[in-house]
């Protein structure tokens, strides 16, 4: 019994000679993927549970739940079929664990340290996994979706992503009008903030409401920006420094104008840049 186990184990730990290396970073509560080397190097995005699934979970009514309930994400991890993929795991706040049962992998993601594992998908298709280390209240809501595609499809996907990324590279010095920033802010809010602060901005339990919050309404933007960048409440409100300056400016502007917060204030990306260093 010990012998075959030893063989498998040694093979399992051998992460050398990978065709593609991806870094998976656990955040409370989403996964960040960075393509470190191999085809697609330089791509980076964040993968979050579809917010409608999260709302459905809260409602307690799952009679209309789709088959991929709690597994659907906005940006799946895309990898080519038949290639050895090395996954480097790390985390930003607490320990998470990157698990995809179909590939037989599970590797804890430890804040401040890197670990790795590998897999080679043999068939094209959608593979799902979930975070497997208790990481706080939304632990059940940080799924992993690995989309395995053929080599040409992968190349096409990489090209498309590169284009999109270039478009997203907004100039942080651009001065925005409130009306242009709000729709973007709403999206960022839905993807990142609504899980805790709720779509209506009212928070819940220990989660602070944003609707009517003094910090949000303040003419002085620095306090809110600092909280966005560094987190608050001992990490219960995590740091969002990984979002782009424009996204942060957009979401701050959105909270200042959504619900009953009709302040008319605009937060510009430049203000975020200025606060980042502090």
């Amino acid at each position: 019994m010990a012998l075959p186990a030893t063989k498998v184990l040694v093979a399992q730990k051998d992460t050398t000679n990978a065709d593609l290396t991806v870094k998976a970073t656990g955040y409370q509560w989403k996964w960040g993927y960075d393509y470190i080397s191999g085809e697609g190097e330089g791509l980076a995005f964040i993968s979050t549970l579809d917010s409608s699934h999260r709302q459905m979970s809260d409602s307690g009514d799952v009679s209309n739940a789709p088959v991929d309930y709690l597994l659907k994400v906005d940006n799946p991890l895309v990898v080519p079929v038949g290639k050895k993929v090395r996954v480097i795991t790390t985390a930003n706040d607490v320990i998470h664990s990157f698990m995809v049962p179909a590939f037989g992998i599970k590797q804890d993601a430890i804040p401040g340290f890197v670990r790795d594992t590998w897999f080679r998908a043999e068939k094209v298709g959608d593979y799902y996994g979930q975070c497997a280390e208790l990481c706080g209240k939304e632990h059940a809501y940080m799924p992993i979706h690995v989309k395995v595609v053929s080599a040409p499809e992968y190349t096409a996907w990489v090209a498309e992503q590169k284009k999109k990324a270039a478009a997203r590279q907004d100039d942080p010095n651009k001065v925005w009008a409130l009306a242009d920033l709000l729709p973007r802010g709403e999206k960022v809010y839905a993807a990142n903030c609504a899980a805790c602060h709720q779509a209506n901005g009212k928070g819940a339990g220990p989660i602070k409401p944003l609707d009517g919050s003094a910090i949000v309404l303040d003419e002085d933007h620095t306090k809110q920006i600092q909280i966005l960048l560094h987190g608050a409440a001992g990490g219960a409100m995590p740091s969002w420094a990984q979002l782009s300056d424009t996204d942060l400016a957009a979401v701050a502007s959105y909270t200042k104008n959504a619900w009953s917060n009709k302040t008319g204030q605009v937060v510009q990306p430049a203000e975020i840049v200025a606060q980042r260093g502090k």
Partner: peptide, 12 residues
């Protein structure tokens, strides 16, 4: 030592 090794240079 581990925090200072090559692998962790990715972070630190």
């Amino acid at each position: 030592p581990e925090l200072g090794n090559v692998e962790n240079a990715l972070i630190w």
